[in-house]
Design a protein around this nucleic acid. Structure first.
Length: 545
RNA sequence: GGCGACAUAGCCAAGUGGUAAGGCAGAGGUCUGCAAAACCUCCAUCAUCGGUUCGAAUCCGAUUGUCGCCUCCA
């Protein structure tokens, strides 16, 4: 069965075809490391992580490359701001208008650390900035258990290759030097190939027509873009035939992707916002350089929105990964991301009360509850199965679910990686598990004890199996649920020991059949968001999300 | 202004020609000292209008609305 993908270059749903039927070469645009990451980055990383995991589950050998753009205008800007210090005018720039005190605290702490590091090295501050944020990237993402890319190339490590690559584009007549800069010649390229704009579906002629060459500009055409930028004072620079300078944005991805994956590699991914100009220009550069098709399959993930508006730096409505982890556990974020199809927007929200007084659950909180539900389900199943050996010959119950879980999972994932449907299937399995666990002895007897046991066993391992392909439900329930409760309690500044003590008091009251006192304690805890569940012999508790 | 996407129940969200998955919220029920959890049942004809078709949420056109890209962005 082929995997069907909604491919952006062709604009259609096509079966995934790879150069080698058993291998996939995949390049995903990573981050430009000039600041902390936010949940938009997280979404992109997790979406493609799930994709890689599924491909590997389908026995593809995936060569996964994800870059760091560590030489860039924004990084240089950040370095300048750090050098200007905390009292610099930059602080009043419009892009910081939405910064809160908390944002500034983190920002200042990062800047101070970078300043300290820069003081003890000869390196340009800009490179210290990028090194620092690569470190932060690894730290912030480490808890998400993502499939580690096979290569994480950095621009600064590929200068000779980039310079040579640009040289070949110039030689072929698709780029020109102007005052130490080198620009890609969109007109020349489009004349030769009629291909400029093919990814983003733009009309190259119209773009060229609309643009004017201003006398101060070095560009021949407004649509041209820099492959190499001549050094300006205070900027990091590398040598090149055109003088000292640095690469423009876009060229690094063409160079590094083809270096590690070859020309015409299989999958190129990134956020939708990269389609133009970044990916369009990557294609133009790469195909200008070698005359061969660049990448066959282009996949783009949708945005994260906040209150329906795209989350972006300039709007100041972004949630940093750092803050995100304070709100919910990594697995909850993974669940939230995968519960929406990768191409659709995800609206991030927290639980709020409307003007009408209605409580509307936020997407993160709903995700947290679902993850909790799944682990609680597994915990019940594990308990029910403990020390019992299922008979694989016993007739299966719930055959639509139990017998077809993996098959239906593959159907969903083969259809353009529909993780949303995959998660629905997980829900079906969990419901069936709960139903079996809750059966009474009489009902078990009627259905056949061996059948119940076997079905429960199959469902549980099946659920774990498909979930783990997506990087979900891989922990032991106890470990996860403990952490989950600790996290929720932490948000509310409550202590588990205090709650346990209250529960003990209530237990004593119950033993004396003093139900009004017992109920009083229940209400007291309930008001704090603690829910009690009386079970045979003990009282369990949960934190309401 | 140019290009593009989307519009599914109170909220979130699958579904690209055959008669609307799932989740949250809500209602009823089983269970319970009372609860909770879990499970069961109920809860939409798919923005509007027109067209193609035996048949459309799914295709085409128009309208309205929302959003994105065109400048940095996952």
């Amino acid at each position: 069965m082929p995997i069907w993908i909604d491919e952006v270059l062709s604009g259609r749903k096509i079966p995934l075809e790879t150069r080698d039927p058993n291998r996939v070469g995949m390049y995903v645009c990573g981050v430009t490391v000039y600041d902390r990451c936010h949940i938009g980055h997280l979404r992109s990383m997790l979406s493609f992580d799930a994709l890689v995991r599924y491909l590997e589950y389908q026995r593809y050998q995936v060569n996964y490359v994800r870059n760091f753009t560590d030489v860039d205008d924004k990084i240089i800007d950040r370095a300048r701001e750090i050098e200007a210090g905390r009292d610099g005018d930059w602080r009043r720039a419009e892009r910081y208008a939405t910064f809160t005190e908390k944002d500034w605290a983190l920002r200042d702490a990062d800047d101070a650390e970078i300043r300290t590091r820069a003081a003890s090295t000869d390196k340009p501050v800009a490179l210290v900035v990028s090194e620092y944020f690569i470190e932060k990237f690894q730290e912030d993402f480490s808890c998400f258990a993502m499939r580690v890319p096979d290569v994480e190339p950095k621009v600064s490590d590929h200068m000779p290759q980039i310079v040579e690559y640009i040289g070949r584009i110039v030689e072929r007549g698709f780029a020109y030097e102007a005052g130490g800069d080198v620009y890609f010649d969109v007109a020349a390229y489009d004349d030769a190939t009629h291909a400029y704009g093919k990814l983003s579906r733009r009309d190259a002629a119209a773009m060229l027509e609309g643009a004017r060459v201003s006398p101060t500009e070095r560009k021949r055409n407004g649509a041209d873009f820099a492959l190499w930028k001549a050094k300006k004072p205070g900027e990091p620079a590398w040598n090149s035939p055109w003088g000292p300078g640095r690469p423009g944005w876009h060229i690094e991805c063409s160079v590094m992707s083809t270096q590690y994956l070859g020309t015409t590699f299989d999958i190129h991914g990134g956020g939708k916002d990269l389609i133009f100009p970044h990916h369009e220009n990557e294609i133009a550069q790469a195909e200008a350089e070698c005359g061969e098709p660049f990448c066959r399959n282009w996949l783009h993930n949708g945005f994260v929105t906040v209150d329906g508006v795209k989350m972006s730096k300039s709007l100041g409505n972004f949630l940093s990964l750092h803050d995100a982890l304070g709100l919910a556990l990594p697995e909850v974020w993974r669940f939230l991301v995968l519960s929406v199809h990768y191409q659709s927007p995800i609206d991030f929200s927290r639980t709020r009360v409307t003007e009408a007084g209605e409580r509307v659950r936020g997407s993160v909180d709903v995700a947290a509850e679902r993850v909790q539900y799944f682990y609680q389900t597994l915990e019940r199943a594990d308990e029910a199965l403990a020390g019992r050996e299922p008979d694989p010959e016993a007739p299966l119950l719930h055959t639509h679910v139990a017998g077809r879980l993996e098959e239906r999972f593959c159907e969903a994932m083969d259809d353009n990686f529909n993780t949303a449907v995959a998660i629905t299937l997980m829900g079906e399995a969990a419901r069936a598990i709960n139903e079996l666990v809750a059966l009474k002895a009489k009902e078990v007897k009627k259905l056949g004890e061996a059948s119940v046991l076997r079905t429960l066993h199959d469902l549980t391992s099946g659920l774990r199996g498909i979930a783990s392909v997506l990087g979900l439900l891989t922990e032991t329930p106890g470990a996860f649920l403990d952490r989950f409760r600790a996290h929720e309690l932490g948000k509310r500044r409550l202590e588990a020991a205090w709650i346990e003590q209250k529960i003990a008091e209530r237990g004593a009251a119950k033993a004396e059949r003093d139900f009004s006192r017992a109920d009083g304690i229940r209400l007291e805890l309930d008001a704090l968001g603690i829910e009690l569940r009386d079970m045979p012999g003990r009282t369990a508790w949960d934190v309401r999300v």
